[in-house]
């Protein structure tokens, strides 16, 4: 059997902040722009892909994050190989758009607690004032000079996606920043 290895990331707790790695979890990149693409994707995923910038849509355990006018990230516990296969067959193979498995391109770190935005503000130039009071919003920005996608699921609960090769470094940085709140 092949073993699964993730960077040295384990659950950590700080005052009003809990950090967790949520892996392995399936992630897909969806690209497309025509009506058939939206219809197909919506039907297969049972989610209308959000078209409003910086927002997300979540149904059960699948979330669709807006990344650009023609790009979405789909992730969640309910995504399985079959769902990925049907998206691939009905979208990629029919040339309606593109579906790419990016499960291991990103590592999902969950951050929750009142101090989430305190830590994020240390390394990100993004203005979280509005963001932190809105649910189901998404931002792609920089955190300590590293590209991240932040998904605000629930109040003070953030799913942070970081490219796998950067994840150990960013994890260390988040922990360091959390220890000097």
């Amino acid at each position: 059997m092949l073993n699964i290895n993730y960077p040295k990331i384990e659950k950590k707790e700080y005052p009003n902040l809990e950090l967790n790695i949520v892996e392995p979890i399936h992630k897909l990149n969806l690209r497309g722009k025509n009506r058939d693409f939206f219809t197909k994707a919506g039907r297969i995923l049972s989610i209308m892909l959000p078209t409003e910038p910086n927002t997300s849509a979540t149904i059960k355990n699948i979330s669709a994050l807006w990344l650009s006018p023609d790009e979405w990230m789909i992730y969640g516990k309910d995504i399985d190989k079959n769902l990925m296969l049907s998206l691939d067959t009905e979208i990629s193979k029919l040339n309606l758009g593109s579906v790419t498995d990016i499960s291991d391109q990103w590592v999902l770190i969950n951050m929750k607690g009142k101090n989430v935005f305190e830590v994020l503000s240390k390394g990100s130039p993004f203005d979280f004032n509005k963001f932190k009071n809105t649910k189901n919003v998404v931002v792609q920005t920089l955190l300590n000079h590293v590209d991240v996608i932040l998904h605000h699921n629930d109040r003070n609960n953030i799913d942070l996606f970081v490219r796998k090769s950067f994840s150990e470094h960013l994890w260390l940085w988040i922990n360091d920043s959390s220890s000097f709140l």
């Binding site: 910038p53 006018p69 130039p125 993004f126 931002v139 920005t141 920089l142």
Partner: peptide, 17 residues
Amino acid sequence: MFIITCPFCGERDQSEF
């Protein structure tokens, strides 16, 4: 460092561009 309004994402810090 200026602020640029991305026509898709809105106001962001220059370092993102």
